[in-house]
Structure formats: C-alpha cells, structure tokens
Amino acid sequence: MSPRDLATVLLLLLAAFFFVAGVLGIVRFPDTLTRLHAVTKADNVGLGLVVFALLFQADSFLAGAKLVLIWILVLIASATSCYLIAGASLLDGDEESG
C-alpha cells in the first residue's frame, strides 16, 4: 500500500467516525442547540475529511478543484443554515427537551 493510499484509508476512517458521531449526536442529544452542534461536526469536519481523503486519489487538477469547491460550498451552506436554524429556534423558545 502506497503512502497515498494509506493516507486515504486513515482519513476516510476518521471521516466515518465523525459522521457516526454526528448522527449519534442528532439522535441522542437532548435539545435543538446541542444537536446543532453535533450536525456541524459531521457537516464540516466529516465531509472535509472525505474530501481530503479523496484528494490523495484525484487524478486531475480539475477533479481535485471540484472536490475542494464542493467542500467550500457545503461550508457556506452549513454555516448559514445552522445560523438560521439556531436563530429561529431561540426566537421560538423551543427549549423543551426531546
């Protein structure tokens, strides 16, 4: 196994860990804001690690650039959505625990 492949494997396993943590968080955490916290980890770190893992395998600059672009777009979308959801959730005062 070449060093590049090894890096891919390790990063992917780490990414899988973050996704598992994110989903566990959203299912198990007690209220909206803590769940939000869990989601952002999976969103930003998990997908970021997948992108990094795949960058080691990308065979052209264009494909690699697309991967990074996708991550940046998700970062923008995720940051904005979480801000909106947090704001709306606080405004509604829905702190009843679930």
């Binding site: 777009l73 923008i76 979308a77 904005t80 801000y83 909106l84 704001g87």
Partner: peptide
Amino acid sequence: PPAVADGAADMLVPG
C-alpha cells in the same frame, strides 16, 4: 433575512 443569509446568497447566486 439575516445578513448572513443575504451574504451566502451573494456567493451562491453567481456560482
């Protein structure tokens, strides 16, 4: 809309 949403849209729309 919060400025954040407008700002994100300003980046996403040209994209």
